[in-house]
Nucleic acid binder design. Structure first.
Lengths: 148, 148
DNA sequence: TATTGTTATACTCTATAACTATA
DNA sequence: TATAGTTATAGAGTATAACAATA
């Protein structure tokens, strides 16, 4: 249908270009996150865990689901973070099988220090846009994220 | 300076929100790439290597630099891809120490199959935007990527 | 001497399968 | 029986240090 309508064709081609731009931008963003993490001996996943637990406490399973990882992977991930004093395991009050994970004071302090670094590392890229365009980009991204 | 000017303050706060949206979008994008990769037993890095080598041949060192990885990491990465018949090591004609890496016919075929899958997996997210907004987003991202 | 690539080593990340404890 | 979490295991990704071959 669209293939036979010349006016529709360009939209499809352009979607490829948008995907390409999105992927490239994502790799750049991930590189910055990786770099900031490396400064503090944190993997991307560890960094993410800290960010997630900054304002909530989650069961192992919920954390795994959130990250799209297997629960056995979470065990090791949390183990190492606990050993470093960044996270704490807490008994879940309502379910004897469950284990809640929460951020420790040290972990929270680290998370607070890390965040500005991410902003700083990404600012050269973001700074290529005018403030007005930055607002437009934010709006477009938030729409895609389902935040209306 | 900016801190004492109330009119400047909001721009800084909003940049935090933009960074947040950018990071969240990047994680979603990476999740899709990861998923597509997993369908073909390819890691994100392997997927990236295939994409890079689709239209060029690179020395090990250049490939490592491009990906931001150590050369020793490249050795293992290329080893596994060669073993699977996706890449080929070729003698560099001008430098006896160097090794060029190029994609194999099988690797190229796989890369071609994978690309549409990425577009398809990202299209629900992209589809939340109108075609006009998709074009705007693409332009903004390409500006950030330095493509003018 | 400097550069290119590989090897040896060690650690993290990841999933699968099997297990224990609780519901 | 089903769910939550851990353990055992195996493989991939990653970096550092030491090395061989070439420039």
């Amino acid at each position: 249908m669209a293939a036979s309508d010349p006016a529709e064709q360009p939209a499809v081609v352009e979607q490829d270009d948008l995907v390409d731009a999105l992927v490239q931008t994502s790799f750049l963003t991930m590189a910055s996150l990786n770099k900031v993490g490396a400064e503090h001996d944190l993997s991307l996943t560890q960094l993410r865990v800290l960010a997630i637990l900054r304002d909530r406490r989650l069961k192992m399973t919920d954390l795994a689901d959130y990250l799209g990882l297997d629960k056995s992977t979470m065990t090791g991930l949390v183990d190492r973070a606990v050993k470093r004093g960044l996270l704490e395991r807490v008994r879940n009050p309502t379910d004897g099988r469950a284990v809640d994970v929460r951020i420790s004071p040290d972990g929270a302090a680290l998370a607070e220090r890390v965040y500005p670094r991410v902003v700083r590392l990404l600012s050269p890229m973001i700074g290529t846009l005018t403030p007005a365009d930055q607002r437009r980009l934010r709006t477009l991204l938030e729409t895609m994220l389902g935040r209306h």
